[in-house]
Design a protein around this nucleic acid. Structure first.
Length: 567
RNA sequence: GCGCCCGUAGCUCAGAUGGAUAGAGCGCAUGCCUCCGGAGCAUGAGGUCACAGGUUCGAAUCCUGUCGGGCGCACCA
């Protein structure tokens, strides 16, 4: 790589100047007139060397051997930047790398096969998945994919509770609807689940047990109702996720923590830390010892544990299963639990930052500038399925991924439903399809384009150089997005790449600039440009695939399926 | 009251480890292409980076405070 040669040459020069193990940062200047690669190393050394940065830069430029660094020209600019202009071949060689690597271009191995768990969605089976779960599903899936691409062994986990108070409330709600359907005059429980789906569950229950529980108030009967409801709603969530193209390696049940004695183990282990005390009949853990805002109750005065305890037990289970790195993707409304969970785990000797959290803010849907809120079926906000059946899975996933998690997300239905470049998803997909269509026009199978066939030094136009440099940043972009657990960085990159590809393609409009067209008459130039088109196609496809979005070879002008609006 | 997140162009948002005149898309203006009241292309205008201090050769970025918005502060889960 050209970057490595520059880095090595710089290191040699700096050592001669008396700098030991300098940190050399290379970047692509935003302004192309600043060359292909730039470094601010002279600026960052100014203090250490006690010399003006500009003077340091000039000395480096004078000492550096351009041949060894593989560069055509070195300039000192501004306050002391060093700008390198690469040999044309060095710039374009990335095209052959892309063609050679193909499906694996962009992948890396900074993870070295280490294990990491990504826990996401983790909705309790009390109803259909809503938009917050959807954002979480799209984000968690993309984060898991980014980690996989950077060499981590990823485990995707879904955690849920099938007992406890919310489940009791669900069972009581279903039972009330069931009895109402059988003509009995009963009221819904206070704070019960109001959505239409509860009636569906009640209908299904009636179909399966007829009127057996009409007057049966035993806890066994309620348990059966609950079991029926949980099974049905879990199945619905699985369908929702499956159709959203999100999959899990493991579903972890909260009740298993009790069944396997892990909650008791945790109580014992915490008791041994000396941080446990009794107050007002309850058992407390001194989590303030580890930066929590207040101490937390582990066991209530009625003898029942709070949610805190199974949470700790669950994360000890994660650690015990070999996951020393865990990323929990959750809604920001859960941020209050972060400190207490970490504090509890620190009490048991786990490291301070364990586990990591990606907390995402809320989703707001707008149409014609008005907020779209209500779903009768859910009895609250719009469901995930209602959204993606309206705008498509690709668009929904992309919109959830394209903003950084800790910012609020405005989901603009007008943009989502638009089938033009105004819609970023279509813009990227169009660019991919356009590259593919070139091969159709040339009557060449795009798979037949291989590395080493083209004279890439013929890619001399500014738009070509910029596009090639853009493609070369794909691996670093993935690495950075993975490191920051931020899929939106990849979305930004793909939009920029699509824009650069579009500019290049349109500049060669045969009716205006036939000499810039991909399919020019000169066979050598044509071969080089076809190689570039193929490289663009590979990068866009790999990026979209990573995000779980289709990379179509041609765009079919489709009207979204006219689904029955859920009324 | 305390804690977490956010505040960048008319709108929606990028700006990793502090670095060169703060970027993109939409919208707007002008020009071009086109069979088209559609789609596309090119160029341009548009910013006290919420505010005030501080650190630094250099701050949208780091620190402190203020203001505004969201969320959370149970012996609920």
């Amino acid at each position: 790589m050209a970057h490595d040669a520059i880095r090595d040459a710089l290191a040699v020069v700096l050592r001669d100047m008396g700098v030991q193990s300098p940190e050399i940062q290379l970047e692509r200047p935003r302004d192309p007139t600043h060359g292909d690669v730039a470094t601010n190393v002279a600026l960052s050394l100014a203090r250490q060397l006690k010399r003006p940065p500009r003077e340091i830069a000039e000395e480096i430029a004078k000492r550096l051997d351009p041949v060894a660094a593989g560069v055509e020209a070195i300039d000192v600019a501004g306050p002391g930047f060093l700008n390198f202009r690469l040999n044309p071949g060095a710039v374009a060689s990335v095209v052959d790398q892309i063609l050679g690597a193909n499906e694996s271009y962009g992948s890396g191995d900074v993870g070295h096969g280490r294990r990491v768990m990504v826990e996401f969605v983790s909705a309790n089976p009390t109803g259909p998945l809503h938009l917050g779960h959807g954002r979480q599903a799209a984000l968690g899936d993309a984060i898991a994919a980014l980690l996989t691409w950077t060499g981590w062994a990823v485990h995707r986990e879904y955690y849920y509770n099938d007992s406890g108070r919310q489940m009791e409330l669900l069972a009581e709600s279903v039972r009330a609807r069931y009895r109402q359907a059988l003509g009995k005059d009963v009221e819904m429980p206070a704070e019960g689940y109001q959505g239409e789906y509860v009636k569906d569950v009640a209908d299904s229950l009636q179909g399966s047990v007829n009127d057996r529980y009409l007057d049966d108030d035993t806890s066994e009967a309620l348990d059966s109702v609950r079991t029926h409801a949980v099974a049905m709603l879990r199945a619905e969530q699985d369908r929702d996720l499956n159709d959203f193209r999100v999959y899990f390696d493991e579903y972890f049940l909260e009740s298993s923590l009790y069944d396997q004695g892990l909650v008791d183990d945790t109580i014992r282990a915490l008791g041994d830390t000396g941080l446990v005390y009794e107050l007002d009949g309850a058992t407390w853990l001194r989590t303030t010892e580890f930066g929590d805002q207040k101490d937390r109750v582990m066991v209530r005065s009625n003898g029942h544990p709070t949610y805190f305890l199974p949470d700790i037990a669950y994360h000890m289970s994660k650690w015990g299963r070999g996951f020393e790195r865990v990323i929990n993707v959750q809604g920001a409304d859960h941020h209050g639990t972060v400190d207490r969970v970490r504090a509890g785990l620190q009490a048991l000797g786990r490291p301070p930052g364990y586990p990591e959290y990606v907390l995402h803010q809320m989703v707001r849907v707008e149409k014609d500038g008005e907020e779209v809120k209500f779903s009768k079926r859910a009895g609250s906000g719009m469901t995930l399925r209602e959204l993606y059946e309206q705008v498509g899975v690709d668009v929904t996933r992309y919109f959830f991924q394209m903003r950084k998690p800790d910012a609020h997300l405005l989901f603009d239905l007008d943009v989502a439903l638009d089938h033009s470049d105004k819609n970023p998803v279509y813009k990227v997909q169009y660019a991919h399809a356009r590259m593919c269509s070139i091969f159709g026009k040339a009557e060449i199978d795009l798979e037949a384009i291989a590395a080493g066939q083209a004279d890439l030094t013929l890619l001399t136009h500014d738009l070509e150089r910029e596009l090639v440099k853009q493609l070369g940043e794909f691996p670093a972009t993935i690495e950075r997005a993975a490191e920051h657990t931020s899929p939106h960085m990849l979305c930004d990159y793909l939009e920029q790449t699509a824009g650069a590809a579009n500019s290049w393609y349109h500049a060669g409009n045969p009716s205006r600039n036939p000499e810039l067209a991909v399919l020019v008459s000169d066979p050598a130039v044509r071969t080089a440009r076809l190689a570039l088109a193929r490289a663009v196609q590979i990068v866009l496809r790999n990026g979209l695939t990573l995000l779980g979005i289709e990379a179509p070879r041609r765009m079919i002008r489709e009207v979204p399926d006219d689904h029955e609006p859920e009324q």
